[in-house]
């Protein structure tokens, strides 16, 4: 299972990671090795096997629609890298 350079670039873009040429190269090789190892799963016949998301059968864990205290604005913003007039500030989107 060989990952292409372009695929690694595409994945990095999806994951919002800026990678250097060197990183792309090393990830291409390393991920290919790991993905190749995973090909072992192809030995298995999984046609009639249902996927398992939760190890233990649980269902309907719900909460009552009762208002609980929010945090004060100061605490919500306390870790904000850039904050302006009660908001989180982000650089221009486009």
């Amino acid at each position: 299972m060989d990952l292409s350079y372009a695929e690694v670039r595409y994945i990095a873009k999806l994951a919002r990671l800026e990678l250097s040429e060197k990183e792309v190269e090393s990830y291409t090789a390393q991920l290919s090795t790991v993905l190749e190892y995973m090909q072992q799963l192809d030995e298995l016949n999984l046609k009639d096997v249902e996927p398992l998301t939760h190890v233990f059968q649980m269902q309907n864990v719900f909460r009552e629609d009762k208002v609980a205290m929010s945090l004060p604005q100061k605490q919500i913003l306390q870790n904000g890298p850039e904050v302006q007039s009660g908001h989180f500030k982000v650089p221009q989107i486009l």
Binding site: S70, I76, L77
Partner: peptide, 14 residues
């Protein structure tokens, strides 16, 4: 459990 009331000061229902 945060309230959904509209028109409240920014980031106070968080």
């Amino acid at each position: 459990g945060c309230s959904t009331v509209f028109g409240i000061e920014a980031n106070t229902q968080v």
